[in-house]
Design a protein around this nucleic acid. Structure first.
Length: 498
RNA sequence: GGCGCUAUGGUCAAGUGGUUAAGACGUCGGCUUCUCAGGCCGAAAUCGAGGGUUCGACUCCCUCUAGCGCUACCA
């Protein structure tokens, strides 16, 4: 690749950053950075009805959170601005080319109402024909057509501009991921709208103008754009422009339905923000997404953005759709959290504050202790930081109920003997006893009483924590407050062992 | 319906004529002698179906089937 590589991610600000869009953004970024190209963000906001407030900011913030950076964008204008289609439209960027196409007869104004359009379509469907736009000025001279325009205008109708499709042509390209593809112009459904009644260009027209003007060299996008490609190519053709290289990546699909991940699916978390809130690490998200529809050469699975960038190879993009496997994401996140627990620790502690287990100020004061608790509670087994709350709550912050099963352990002959021995041993141990000390004490009881296994451990565990299972008991005893534990034991004794 | 794309285990996937068909997630089993978590060890696919081509095909060709995508004054 010797020419200047310029690629773009062009979201419409209709909501938060979707996993599918994030993938498009990541791969475009990878492509740009791997080849020392330029990465551009362009906002495609030509559908004013669907734009939402803060949609753009949210997209950008989430992209940044993932670790991406960009060279040109609305918030970082380069020499090809503006970078919002709405602003470009205001500047007449599209109008110029629409006028040119209108002037040379490659486009025309159409005044059909949506009712008329719907009727045509229904009639075609009833006749088992593929929906196809019917050109209304067939056989008319330019003058006659202009006269029609005037007539419609007089009726107060607003026109759209349609592109006159050269039906006999076939458009072909060598797709970066799918190889050679060709589609006949007649398959696009007839003359399509390039400018809406409100004056906004349509997507398929605006992309072409912008990609050309912004000197985009490679367009990497989702599979769902394959059938848009001939439409876009005919515009490049009509305007005499060179076509960029296209690459259509397989889609991410919903594991349940097998369909393209849709923003309306509620059974899958599909916005980057949702994962962020649960405490997924950005590196893990990138790692997971980078492995969906792309595979590295070796056998490793854990990669940073930087490593992906270095390894990137567009020929290893997969052609088949990939199901979104949340379990794998969880595993990858777990791997990233464990890579550097110290870095994630503040987040983990924040989760406890958010869950009202401890106040912000106390958390600050006791952060070393909290770190110990979190480690002992089993941080190595969680998938995302939010999960630490449930692990840590009992018995470190609250005691659970004493169940019948626990009472049975306590009140059995062995249980009573163990309790008494443990009470004596625990009381005798110093406040700064270590896990080894506690272990030695318990082993001592085991030897003295010749009781082992559950019958030995459960009474002690229950008496000190109200739990029948949990993390390593000696380690827990180190972090548990001794007076509290003594009190817990006293309560147990008083309530069940008298 | 039309057009296009895709097809290796539950999932992500490596593999480009001759391999014991990598690896990972998940699952199951065992071990780590309190449990949980973690760790360690191990198990499980003949490559959508049917035809070819070839000494030999998951790898090449054909047909079929299935799935997905698009078919808007949405992007």
């Amino acid at each position: 690749m010797t020419e200047d590589i310029r690629v773009r991610y062009a979201p419409s600000p209709t909501g938060h950053l979707h996993i599918g869009n994030a993938r498009t953004a990541i791969f475009n970024w990878l492509f740009a950075r791997h080849y020392n190209g330029t990465f551009i963000i362009r906002i495609e906001d030509t559908d004013s009805a669907r734009n939402i407030a803060d949609g753009e900011k949210s997209q950008l913030d989430n992209l940044a959170w993932l670790g991406l950076d960009w060279d040109e964008s609305p918030d970082k204008p380069g020499e090809y601005g503006p970078y919002r289609q709405s602003e470009r439209n205001e500047q007449g960027v599209y109008q110029e080319f629409i006028d040119a196409l209108l002037a040379n007869g490659q486009a025309y104004k159409s005044y059909k109402t949506s009712e008329q359009l719907a009727e045509e379509r229904e009639a075609q469907q009833a006749a088992k024909q593929a929906p196809h736009y019917i050109y209304e000025y067939e056989g008319l001279t330019n003058e006659e057509r202009e006269a029609k325009y005037a007539e419609f205008e007089a009726q107060g109708l607003k026109p759209v501009v349609r592109f006159r499709v050269p039906e006999e042509k076939v458009f072909a390209w060598d797709d970066i991921v799918k190889g050679h593809i060709e589609i006949g112009a007649k398959e696009v459904g007839g003359d399509w709208v390039i400018q809406k009644a409100d004056g906004m260009p349509t997507y398929n027209f605006a992309v072409v103008v912008d990609d050309h003007l912004m000197k985009i060299s490679h367009v990497l996008r989702g599979d769902d754009h394959v059938s848009n490609t001939p439409k876009q190519m005919m515009i490049y053709d009509a305007l005499g422009w060179d076509v960029p290289k296209f690459g259509h990546m397989a889609l991410i699909i919903n594991g349940e339905t097998g369909k393209k991940l849709s923003k309306r699916d509620e059974n899958v978390l599909q916005f980057v923000e949702q994962y962020k809130e649960l405490g997924y690490q950005p590196q893990a998200m990138v790692n997971f997404i980078g492995l969906l529809g792309w595979s590295p050469k070796g056998e490793d699975e854990i990669f940073s953005l930087e490593e992906f960038k270095n390894m990137f190879d567009e020929t290893r993009l997969s052609k088949a759709n990939a199901k979104f496997d949340q379990k794998k994401l969880e595993w990858i996140n777990n791997q990233w959290m464990r890579r550097d627990t110290a870095a994630v620790m503040p987040q983990l502690i924040q989760e406890l504050v958010n869950a009202d287990l401890i106040s912000e100020s106390d958390a600050q004061l006791k952060k070393d202790w909290l770190a110990d608790v979190i480690k002992i509670a089993g941080v190595d087994g969680i998938s995302y930081t939010r999960e630490i709350v449930a692990l840590v709550r009992k018995p470190f912050f609250e005691l659970g109920d004493v169940t019948d099963e626990m009472v049975d352990y306590l009140t059995s002959d062995d249980g009573r003997k163990v309790f008494d021995a443990w009470e004596a041993a625990y009381t005798a141990l110093p406040n700064d006893a270590t896990a080894e000390d506690y272990m030695a004490a318990i082993r001592g009881i085991q030897n003295d009483l010749e009781i082992k296994g559950r019958n030995l451990w459960n009474p002690i565990r229950i008496a000190t924590t109200h739990e029948i299972q949990g993390p390593n008991l000696p380690e827990m005893l180190v972090v548990l407050d001794k007076n509290t534990v003594l009190q817990t034991m006293a309560d147990i004794k008083q309530k069940y062992l008298n």
